[in-house]
Computed example of a mutant assay.
Amino acid sequence: MTRSIPSALCAFAFLGLAVSACSPTVATRGNLTDPDRLAEIKAGQSRREDVAGVLGTPTSAGTFDPNVWYYIGQKTEKVAFFRPEVVERRVVIVHFDDAGVVQEIKQLDANDGQDIEMVDRTTPTAGRELGFLEQMLGNVGRFSAKDGKNRGPGR
């Protein structure tokens, strides 16, 4: 009877480790804005300094229009060795007028995104392609006896 208690404890410990290994790893990247804090910003009232104070510095400013700020963030979950899954993605776009007053606040989520198909083309290079054996044995026979004749230790 005393022998079964330690083995039961070991089984429960192993089961606990196995279950905890399968729990997802959550990662938040970027500036995932809090909806409550975003509600504090009012179009026509809040200024650039107010937005920076409430939401922090933007992830990016507009390339062609510095009066546009972007707050980009996402939360992912990864289980074991599988690919991370996007749980939440949010982009907040804040438009300012020339005086620095908020004109418009726009929110985008993962549903507003577009899937982009990757192109599998390769860029051709000059020369010929070497096979595995050609690469491994490529230098065999390229050196003549006179190349190694004048070389000694330390030369």
Rank of each mutant, 00 (worst) to 15 (best):
G100R: 04
D112F: 08
D112V: 02
L108H: 08
R48S: 00
S60D: 11
N139C: 10
A126V: 13
E117K: 07
V54C: 03
K78C: 00
P153D: 14
A39L: 03
F132D: 07
G30V: 09
N31P: 13
A21K: 05
G154L: 04
E134F: 11
R121Y: 06
I5Y: 14
G53C: 03
R37H: 09
P124I: 13
V86K: 09
E85R: 11
F143Q: 14
G73R: 03
E49T: 00
I116W: 03
R37W: 04
Y71P: 12
N111F: 14
F14Q: 06
G127W: 05
E77C: 03
V54L: 08
V19M: 05
V54G: 06
V54Y: 08
G131L: 02
A13P: 01
R151N: 12
I41L: 03
R155V: 09
P84W: 03
D34V: 02
G131T: 11
T63L: 14
V92Q: 10
P153K: 12
R29C: 14
M1F: 12
L133G: 12
A11E: 03
A61L: 12
L137D: 11
T122R: 10
G154E: 00
P6K: 08
N139F: 07
R142W: 02
S7K: 04
P66R: 08
W69K: 00
V91E: 06
K106L: 00
T63K: 11
F143L: 13
E117Y: 01
E134L: 07
R128N: 06
K146A: 15
D147L: 04
K149Q: 03
F82C: 06
G131V: 08
V87Q: 09
F14N: 10
